[in-house]
Design a binder for these strands. Structure first.
Lengths: 152, 152
DNA sequence: TTATATGCAAAAGATTTGCAATATA
DNA sequence: TATATTGCAAATCTTTTGCATATAA
């Protein structure tokens, strides 16, 4: 989805298209395929519309998540990261721990897992599958870092 | 693993077995098969050793997680829940959203997913698979709640 | 015009930290 | 006894809320 379509989706859901919303969505699109923290998002948004406030970013991320335009990822420390939803169809992500780059994985074992749950008398309503690793570039950087460690 | 073995594992890792640690592990064992929040854990721990402090609970959960005796689950709001690790072997959990009950799922598609990642030039280092739903009992309670909703 | 959205400041909630006191081995 | 552990209070960090003001439709 392009910027226009995303803004249209906001409008269609009864939300006004404000300067701040435009800037937030724009930055999210610019960071497509990469998770981004809320402060980092604000930092970049301010380059487009400098008046934007942190509270506004939080409030809008909630809205964007609600209409499924963005996806929220919680890290182990309980800090939220966001990225724009690339596909309409169900999928999961591989997230690079070095640079935050995300890759889409279309495979999902949910049907099988639902049956496993059903056998245990549980009705599944949600599932979370998140894969973490290092992309080629970050792997190289890590290698260099390790070299450095050896020297010092 | 029984309480004694768990405390031995603490000792073997160079940690002292304090009153607080004993109480914390005891309560975690008592809540086996169920995720529990930190305050709830403290509340129950205090019944055994009333002097226990919240800070101590946090510090020890970190240790217990580090030696793989407990497993941490983050909810969407960034709040942590813990439960004792039932098995030595790799597995995942189904968590009941009603009562926090956990069920072990031994199936894991990680080998396949690692290959998918490898094809995308990513080396997987971690993965998170969490399944959420409602157990039979909570399902019944939900049903009753819905009945209530219809009446009022 | 008018309801929605924003900014600011303050609050809330979870978790962490420094440091002096305490308990374990 | 020596070192790890704890408790307390304060700090930190992220996120949320109330309310007056500003803005999109």
């Amino acid at each position: 989805m392009g910027l226009d379509q995303l803004l249209k989706k906001l409008k269609n859901n009864g939300y006004k298209v404000t300067q701040q919303r435009k800037a937030i969505v724009q930055i999210l699109v610019l960071n497509k395929g990469k998770i981004i923290s809320v402060e980092e998002l604000l930092k970049q948004v301010k380059k487009i519309y400098s008046k934007t406030n942190l509270t506004t970013v939080y409030r809008n991320l909630e809205i964007l998540e609600h209409i499924h335009l963005v996806h929220k990822v919680m890290n182990e420390e309980g800090k939220a990261y966001y990225h724009i939803n690339e596909l309409d169809s169900h999928h999961h992500h591989i997230i690079c721990k070095g640079c935050g780059k995300t890759e889409v994985v279309e495979y999902c074992p949910i049907d099988y897992l639902s049956q496993v749950a059903k056998d245990k008398k549980i009705r599944l309503t949600e599932h979370k599958i998140e894969l973490y690793g290092y992309c080629e570039e970050c792997e190289k950087l890590n290698g260099l870092k390790e070299e450095d460690d050896k020297i010092h």
